[in-house]
Design a protein around this nucleic acid. Structure first.
Lengths: 244, 244
DNA sequence: AGTACTTAGTGTTTATTTTACACTTATAAA
DNA sequence: TTTATAAGTGTAAAATAAACACTAAGTACT
């Protein structure tokens, strides 16, 4: 029952919305033989890194996000912690751990974060590794238990957008109501009624209509809106939300 | 930026309901000088323990719960992970860590769980330490960041009971509608309208009325109900809840 | 036996929210 | 000027939420 030095990491599920579908940021994990330069394997993972001893787990998650996208101060929230059962490591994962000089017997504890990003404004770059957005429906088998982590992140996201105004994070600052509706439809994978959706969001005071319209579209241009966090925090009911 | 062996623990916030108020299980932490037997300090903590290398974090949390209450298979859910910023350790905590042979510089990562228990059916006992239920409003300063952990657990609980039928876990198997209402009132610290509350729960098919009544009360005896998880899982809308 | 005490249990009205459903309007492109 | 495309709008019916006060059924006490 001795405590072998565990390895603490964060894994970030970065959700993006491209105007049509929900996407997730995926990194290629490529391992080649140092001498022969043969490809040993090539698969895919979520983005993550280990937690340094002098930083909080939120620091670590923000660092991963920043190194990848150059962005700071974006929505990033812890959702669940996973202790990889090492006996279930896939062969590739074992090889990978040895290659990176880590003990495959050491417990891996990883804290899952998820972030919401407007896909367009991001230039991806990460330590020379191939990083790209993949529509969530097209994601195949990932390394470690990253499929589970992704699945739990999506479950959390689907719940969270019911009660908190975070869908705006997936959109440009100014957006149309149709775009907003599309985000909900993409996340929940359902179709919503346009008129009822608009009636519903019309009640949200923190959704501010602008005197501005879309330009350059080959149809009736839509009105643009912004989300006001100020109005939101002022009007939301704190009824059950006091801290002891 | 070297990785000092971190220390991984679980902290369990055990919520109980005594018929009147929401309570939390608290452990006395007493430290005496090994030679002189003088009391060095005596303060209070949540219940927790470290995670062994051969168990999952859920195993560890269940182990803590079992050692404390003798109960298995009760509601126990992870809610948030905390990385104690060690620079903020209180003096007592530093002394405690040294006393238990641990490096105060080693990062502490603790995974917070919360559990819901019907206070009455539990016999408390934990390694000879003093363990007791304390009403949540009477809890003072706790060790480490346990006040923060408790506060986050309560926030989670207050949210969770809005959408999931877990309040039953705080009650005996057969309960009255008034008891159920009292649980909501205790958790949210509000008063609810009796008639509206009953109208609302009457819509819940998984709340099964029995042909049984309270006995031994000096007033009109109330009808007893049970919660049927079967009916709940069958009838609940899985609409947005598929797994990829 | 009767009375006092205590909590259980019930219904109505009004306001708000949800749901289902189809046509007109404004712009760019051809 | 015509066409294609998405924007934008209203109504009726059903369900839910909110406010509000009295009667019923048991025990305890005399």
């Amino acid at each position: 029952m001795e405590q072998i030095s565990p390895y603490i990491s964060v894994d970030c599920v970065l959700f993006g919305y491209n105007g049509f579908e929900l996407e997730v940021l995926i990194v290629d994990r490529t391992l080649t033989n140092d001498k022969t330069h043969e490809l040993i394997f090539n698969d895919q993972t979520l983005t993550g890194n280990h937690v340094y001893v002098d930083e909080t787990i939120d620091d670590a998650a923000n660092r991963v996000l920043f190194e990848l996208t150059g962005l700071k101060d974006v929505f990033l929230e812890q959702f669940k912690t996973f202790a990889h059962p090492n006996r279930l490591l896939k062969p590739n994962d074992q090889i990978w751990l040895q290659h990176t000089g880590r003990d495959p017997k050491a417990r891996i504890v990883t804290i899952g974060f998820y972030s919401l990003l407007a896909t367009d404004k991001i230039k991806l770059e990460w330590k020379g590794r191939n990083v790209r957005w993949i529509p969530i429906k097209e994601i195949g088998e990932l390394a470690f238990d990253h499929n589970l982590i992704l699945s739990e992140a999506l479950r959390t996201l689907r719940q969270r957008i019911k009660y908190e105004p975070i869908t705006f994070e997936l959109l440009p600052e100014k957006f149309t109501l149709t775009q907003l509706q599309n985000v909900y439809e993409a996340i929940w994978d359902v179709e919503l009624d346009k008129r009822n959706f608009r009636k519903k969001v019309a009640r949200m005071k923190y959704l501010i209509p602008l005197d501005e319209k879309q330009t350059g579209v080959a149809h009736k241009p839509a009105r643009l809106y912004v989300f006001s966090r100020d109005v939101y925090t002022k009007t939301k009911k704190e009824l059950f939300d006091f801290t002891i």
